[in-house]
């Protein structure tokens, strides 16, 4: 059965069933640095970040006929895939991208800047108290610079639900971080 959704709307959204492989490679190449940064902020080591990046690239390449050609839509689509790859990674699945460890050993992955961010254990504890989806929503806005609506769309949330969740999550963070005696 042919899906009218998957065919017609891809055309409407700028996607094409005949994406030029060279264009697709260029798109992926452009997205890779920021996706590596995305994973690097969320997984414990460079091997896991490389694994998640490799897995994301595989999914995007295989689904290239569904990737919108419009740059911003493609970026959002890529982050949606990345968010799910990250979730699978956090569920403890085995490493999927066979080359990850070898590549990390072969090439030098560095962290830009003098040091990592502050070790704010109270904030880490407060963030861990949030539901995973809410935490990721807050961090997509705070760390990746997405608007709330776009961050929610990446996570499969409606605009209304995104805003409600975002507000609730921030309110909870503020409560969790309040000093004893604060109201």
């Amino acid at each position: 059965m042919t899906s009218p959704v998957t065919d017609e709307s891809r055309r409407e959204s700028g996607a094409s069933s005949t994406v030029d492989p060279g264009d697709m490679k260029q798109l992926l190449r452009d997205l890779m640095p920021e996706l590596l940064r995305y994973f690097g902020r969320r997984v414990p080591n460079a091997e896991d970040a490389a694994d998640c990046l490799g897995e994301t690239m595989i999914v995007l390449w295989r689904r290239r006929e569904a990737v919108p050609l419009d740059r911003e839509s493609a970026r959002r689509y890529a982050y949606g895939v990345a968010a799910n790859v990250l979730r699978e990674s956090q569920r403890g699945r085995a490493r999927q991208f066979a080359l990850a460890e070898r590549l990390v050993a072969e090439y030098d992955l560095t962290r830009d800047g003098v040091a990592d961010g502050d070790t704010d254990s109270d904030l880490a504890r407060a963030l861990s108290a949030l539901r995973p989806l809410d935490r990721e929503l807050v961090l997509l806005v705070a760390w990746e610079g997405f608007g709330v609506g776009v961050a929610g769309a990446i996570l499969g949330l409606s605009d209304q639900a995104s805003r409600a969740r975002y507000s609730r999550a921030r309110a909870r963070l503020r409560r969790e971080l309040a000093s004893p005696g604060d109201d």
Binding site: P33, L36, R37, F39, G40, R41, A46, A49, A50, Y107, D108, L109, T110, R111, D112, G113, V114, A115, D116, G117, D118, D120, L123, A124, A142, W143
Partner: peptide, 8 residues
């Protein structure tokens, strides 16, 4: 709290 960017 944002970690330093990973680059390759």
């Amino acid at each position: 709290a944002k970690r330093a960017d990973l680059s390759a």
